[in-house]
Nucleic acid binder design. Structure first.
Lengths: 263, 263
DNA sequence: GTCTATAACAAGATAGAC
DNA sequence: GTCTATCTTGTTATAGAC
């Protein structure tokens, strides 16, 4: 997250919804720094509200400044411009979604079989998406040229993926992974190589090869399927077509889990 | 497609790429009408080019007008404003994608088993998406508030869905549909009811119930999976992660086809 | 009537002086 | 922090040309 050309490491602190989701890590040293941090938080709060209510296209520096009784140009002391502000919101959305996904994954009963725990994270993703449709669009919608926050989104994205993969990792470690039925393509070395970086990233604690590449492929497919149903619902494609999106989502998640090999 | 508050029926005519994708159906009666149609086509061509090169956010009436050596206000004789122009481009994209999907579905060998013909339409969707990433974003990305063309996109959307469903319809009619393995959810009446409008739309020629609702559910899931992988690839989520998107796509399509029950 | 251009207004992003 | 100046954009009013 870039603020005034100084890179500031940020961390998600679970707080009251809509208030200072993003907070700088290091403690404020001077009074000025404390003020500065507060104002930055207020700007982000207002910007996030505008984003949630009217969408990214309607986010303007001036209207944010108006809500804060500031001159538009004053915002440039805190953000390098509209792009930087939007980039901060994008990163903010990633962090928030990742936190929700992790929370859901951790709160699932460890004693339950993996097939039962598997839907927890997908459900959290859908819940978050329905709560924050415009922010979901920032993450999984079409990237707006120039606005995509680059490096910093990689880490939260990986956290989302790991939260999703957790039941698979545990099933694999415990030897409870059902053999994926009929996956001839996945045996080909090219496909295994294509997902090698993912396997590395998703299962860092497991010995290489503990999770068959066929399962990794199926897991990536499951991720895409989950994102696909959620996006189609959130972006309005089910209108007058799928009368019960929740039921379809549950069916999708269940089928995806079985395809991966969870029982 | 709304031009100057007069509804004009339009039809996709396959032509040289980028040239007058959208053409009015009725023949021009007067010389003025002919000119008007030409200018409208030129405006759309330029706008489509700008959209393809710089994205929807960067599409501006003034730059289109500049490219055409026209005054910005002159465009208002042809489109009610920026929103109307973008709406026309959205509809244009739907029509183009639907035409490609139908072409791909029809050009597949009728003698081949359905399982082999099934990937044709998904491949066409992916090919179109890679060729027109910004236009894919207009259809399957986050909807921009106010810009979504409402009624007219329903028909091309249904054509895409029907093209995708065609192999399933034929397999069902011929009794070659493999029983979908383990679909307990799909038997529930609520899920069957949730997809009832889709079944009606996708299989108009078949007697009601010829395609089990479990298969309809799986087909919708397959649609979402295909859209999901394509979007994740086109929107840049595979960067540094999936090294061979094409291989993953093929695996996804194959798995989806098997889940639906095609052999 | 139909099209086009000129001019003008409002809103916005941004840079720089203070 | 503010204020001012400059640039771009969407949009409309108006007047003239065919």
């Amino acid at each position: 997250m870039i603020i005034n050309k100084n890179t500031v490491h940020v961390k998600y602190l679970c707080s009251r919804p809509g208030h200072n989701r993003l907070v700088a890590m290091s403690a404020p040293r001077t009074a000025r720094e404390r003020i500065r941090r507060e104002v930055t938080g207020e700007i982000l709060d207002v910007a996030r509200r505008h984003l949630a209510e009217r969408g990214a296209a309607a986010l303007s520096l001036r209207s944010v400044a108006r809500d804060l009784d500031m001159a538009p140009s004053a915002l440039y002391r805190y953000f390098d411009g509209r792009d930087a502000l939007l980039s901060a919101l994008i990163l903010d959305a990633y962090e928030s979604l990742a936190a929700d996904a992790e929370r859901a994954g951790e709160s699932a009963r460890p004693a339950a079989p993996e097939g039962e725990r598997w839907p927890a994270v997908p459900r959290a993703l859908r819940g978050w998406a329905l709560e924050h449709p415009h922010e979901w669009g920032l993450i999984f919608g079409a990237p707006v040229p120039g606005y995509q926050a680059p490096e910093a989104t990689i880490e939260p994205y990986a956290r989302i993926a790991r939260a999703l993969a957790r039941p698979v990792a545990q099933a694999a470690a415990a030897g409870r992974l059902a053999v994926a039925p009929a996956a001839p393509e996945a045996h080909r070395s090219e496909l295994a190589a294509a997902v090698a970086p993912v396997a590395e990233e998703l299962f860092p604690d497991l010995p290489s090869g503990a999770v068959p590449s066929a399962v990794v492929v199926r897991l990536v497919e499951a991720f895409a399927a989950v994102v696909g149903v959620i996006s189609l619902e959130v972006f309005g494609h089910w209108r007058n077509t799928i009368l019960d999106p929740a039921a379809l989502f549950e069916a999708t998640v269940r089928d995806a889990g079985m395809t991966v090999g969870l029982r």
